[in-house]
């Protein structure tokens, strides 16, 4: 699904041979004879900038244009008070939101909101990843663990983050911990479920190969099960990050002072329309950015997938 980043990764050239001409010849021969793949790889590696612009660059251009078109339509609808079932009368135009944003960005308050939210997401997310991966691996490896944990997940997963607010307040000591708990729950389920899915797909041939090479159970977990589950785990981590931001907004309803979710809710209470939109877009932007960071950060773990250039 991520074709452009794959293309960028296909740059590693095959290493040169170790000197013996006989070996080299044979390898070359077989590489070309039996594997058109090797040829293709080196072609992709030398993809010229001009072609990149024509293929991948154009696609990015289209995406940016799509966003610009929406903003222009919105500006138009707001200025003219568009009202046909959907009402734009009270919706501030992008230009108004932009002006308000500049004002926010020049103050200090706005950054404090963002910092508080980032801190909460970071703590909740790290906890969710640690707990989620451990539980997921346990469930994927042991039927007992799965039978014990799965009912809880099935029951709790459909409960929306907002519904947890009363219990979070009752159960947890501080406001901060309640918000973190709600965010944590949001991120937890996708991480667990994707980890379980990945672990359960472990190739039995690879496990047998590892056993016949003398690997212990622990070694199999580290060298076979976890790397094999990694593509699925990474997908779970990315989804989890998105859901974490999503849940944070709900959690920050109970926040008394700071947080971008609090900022958004508070603006609504104070009828500050441009600020509502700023809050929404900030959450969207930060969520996207963090998800992207997770994906990029996990790329080294998956480089074996990209190298082949197989899609």
């Amino acid at each position: 699904m991520d074709n452009h980043s794959n293309a960028a990764l296909l740059t590693a050239p095959m290493e040169e041979t170790d000197g013996s001409p006989g070996v080299e010849q044979i390898i070359r021969k077989e590489a070309t004879m039996a594997s058109p793949m090797a040829e293709k790889t080196s072609d992709n590696a030398r993809l010229p900038a001009r072609i990149w612009m024509k293929t991948i660059g154009v696609r990015y251009l289209v995406r940016i244009m799509a966003l610009i078109v929406a903003v222009v339509l919105w500006e138009f609808a707001s200025r003219n008070g568009f009202h046909f079932y959907i009402n734009f009368d009270n919706i501030p135009a992008p230009s108004v939101v932009g002006t308000a944003l500049v004002a926010e960005l020049s103050g200090q308050e706005f950054y404090l909101h963002i910092l508080h939210s980032l801190e909460r997401v970071a703590i909740a997310y790290v906890l969710a990843v640690v707990v989620g991966v451990i539980l997921g691996v346990a469930m994927g490896r042991s039927r007992w663990a799965e039978d014990i944990i799965l009912p809880y997940i099935e029951l709790l997963r459909p409960i929306p983050a907002v519904a947890w607010i009363p219990l979070a307040i009752l159960m947890l000591p501080t406001e901060q911990s309640s918000i973190i708990f709600i965010t944590f729950l949001g991120a937890l389920f996708p991480v667990i479920l994707n980890t379980v899915h990945g672990v359960e797909q472990t190739s039995s041939v690879l496990v047998r190969a590892a056993r016949s090479l003398g690997a212990s159970r622990t070694a199999i977990l580290w060298h076979v099960v976890l790397p094999g589950a990694m593509p699925s785990i990474v997908a779970g981590l990315a989804i989890g990050m998105g859901v974490a931001w999503f849940s944070l907004l709900a959690g920050e309803i109970i926040s008394g002072q700071y947080g971008i979710g609090y900022y958004t809710w508070n603006s609504y209470t104070l009828i500050q329309y441009p600020q509502i939109i700023i809050g929404m877009l900030t959450i969207g932007g930060l969520g996207t950015l963090c998800t992207l960071l997770v994906r990029k950060g996990c790329n080294p773990l998956l480089k074996w997938q990209a190298k082949g250039g197989r899609s």
């Binding site: 095959m14 290493e15 070996v23 080299e24 044979i26 594997s35 090797a38 790889t41 190298k307 250039g309």
Partner: peptide, 17 residues
């Protein structure tokens, strides 16, 4: 005969390799 491919990942090799 595959010394030259030590840093390649398996999915870049042919079936025989």
């Amino acid at each position: 005969g595959l010394a030259a491919f030590e840093n390649a990942y398996p999915n870049t090799l042919s079936g025989g390799m």
